[in-house]
Amino acid sequence: MLKVENVVKVFNKGSVNEKTALDHISFFQKKGEFVTIIGSNGAGKSTFLNAIAGNFPCDSGSISIGSRNVTKLPQYTRAEYISRVFQDPMSGTAASMTIEENLIMAFRRGEKRRLRLAIKDKDRDFFCQELSKLGLGLENRLTTKVSLLSGGQRQALTLLMATFKEPELLLLDEHTAALDPKTAEKVLQLTCEVTKGRTLTTLMITHNLDHALNIGDRTIMMHEGRIVLDIEGEERKNVTIANLLEMFERASGAQLHTDRVLFS
C-alpha cells in the first residue's frame, strides 16, 4: 500500500546548517496496517510524514501510495489519498470559520472546489450525526466559529475531519501531545474507534511508549533519519517498555531522548 524507497531529505544543503533529516529511508506498509513511530526529538519522524504528504520534494528516492507513484506530485494533489492530524490543535482547522464550514471543506478533500453553495441541508444532517459520535455536544453548534472551541474539541474535530471521508492513508503526528492527559486519552480513544473496523492505513507518531506498543499492529523506531527498529506480531506483544529502551540503545548506540513523559 505505502512504499517508501531510499528516500533522502537534506535541509539547508551546502550551508553550515546542513542536516540530513532522512537518510536513505525505506519502508513498506500493508493496506489497513496501523504503524506507530517512536524516536528521539529530531530523529526525523515529522520529516518522514511530511515527505509522504509531499510538503517538499525529496532529494532522491521514491514514494508510492497504492499503485501510484506520488514522488513528484505536489502536496495538494496527494491530498486525495492522505489525511493528516498535527500536534498543534490550531493547525488542523480554520479558526475564523464555523464548524460546519470546516467539516464541508474536509468532506471535499481532494475534490475540485466549485462555484456552488458549499453546504446543503442534507450535509448538516450528516454532520450532526457524525459530530454526535464525538460525544462533545458539538452537534448543536454547527455554526459556531472554531476559534471558540477548546484545544481538545478542535483536535477531536480535526480527527473527524481527517477520517469521515475515508483516506487511503492517515498520518498522525503526535496529535495528542498538546492536550491535557484526560483529553489526550479521549482523543486517542477516538483514534482507535475511527480506525478500527475500517481498512485505514495509519501512521502515528507518539512520544508515549506505552501507546506505541499497545495501539496498532507494528512499531518502528527512528534515529538520525533512519529506521533502527521495526517490530510486529508476537515479538511486539512480548516487548516491554524497558526492553524497548534497551533495543533502542543497542540499535542506535545512543540513549532515547524525548523531553516529554515516557511512561504515562
Binding site: 493547525s91 482547522t93 470559520m97 471535499r108
Partner: peptide, 14 residues
C-alpha cells in the same frame, strides 16, 4: 477564506 486563515490546512485538504 481558508487560504487566508490556515493555508497549511487547506492545502493538505487538496
Amino acid at each position: 477564506r481558508a487560504t487566508g486563515d490556515n493555508e497549511l490546512m487547506i492545502r493538505s485538504l487538496g
